[in-house]
Amino acid sequence: MTESGGCAIAGCETRPDADAPLPLCAPHLLTAYDWVARAVGVTDVLPSPCLACGSRTGIRYPSGWLCAVCEWRVGALPDGEAGRTRVDVVYYLRFRDRVKIGTTGNPRARLAQLRYDEVLAFERGDRMLEQRRHAQFAAHRIHRSEWFDRHAALDEHIARLNGPGVDPWGLHQRWVSEAIAVAGR
């Protein structure tokens, strides 16, 4: 603050808020924020899901948007390889009082084909893991299908997969992003 109690910007006599981090008035703090945001970007919701990983979180720069998960430039089309990045998952869906344990390499497309009330969890793995889970919970399997009655052991397994505050779709987005990064695309 200047000796007059105004903003530290020459000629500005607007008094800074008492809890301001710098001796600047609100308009000058916003100008400084905009200047810094040019370099570091602003985290926000993407205008549409990322084409590479499906994330909805992005970083907005004056030059455009980047996905906050996989850093894909919004508006760029995934090349043939990145667009085909496959991450196999075992999914756990709830429909009424039953749980379906299935597997897919494209959960959005597969789950769009199914009737369910809630996505309970994703577990990274393929058909072999799915078959192990079917065997693990076989005592509660419904007529040799992929559907199981809810029971304590299955609920505990799903709770371990989720962890506190874990979003299954967020996990899947991270796995796809990691697969793209490992492939160097």
Rank of each mutant, 00 (worst) to 15 (best):
R141P: 03
D117Q: 08
G125P: 09
D117W: 04
E130M: 12
R108S: 10
Y92A: 11
I101F: 04
E146G: 13
D126Y: 11
A112D: 08
V87W: 02
R115F: 00
I142G: 02
D126L: 08
L129D: 00
M128C: 10
F148G: 01
E146M: 09
A121F: 09
W147C: 05
D97K: 14
H151Q: 11
A82M: 12
Y116H: 15
I142E: 05
E123L: 07
R150T: 12
R73K: 15
V119S: 01
D117G: 13
R98P: 03
F95K: 14
L120D: 01
R108A: 12
L114D: 07
H151F: 13
D117M: 04
Y92C: 12
A138N: 10
A112K: 09
F95A: 12
A138V: 12
F122Y: 06
K100Y: 10
Q136G: 02
R141Y: 00
E81P: 07
Y116R: 05
D149Q: 12
Q131L: 05
Q131I: 00
P107M: 05
W72N: 07
R132K: 13
L77P: 04
G83H: 06
Y92L: 15
E71P: 04
Q113M: 09
A109V: 01
R86I: 08
H140Q: 15
R133A: 03
S145M: 01
H157E: 06
Q113P: 00
R132Y: 02
D155M: 11
H151R: 12
Y91L: 09
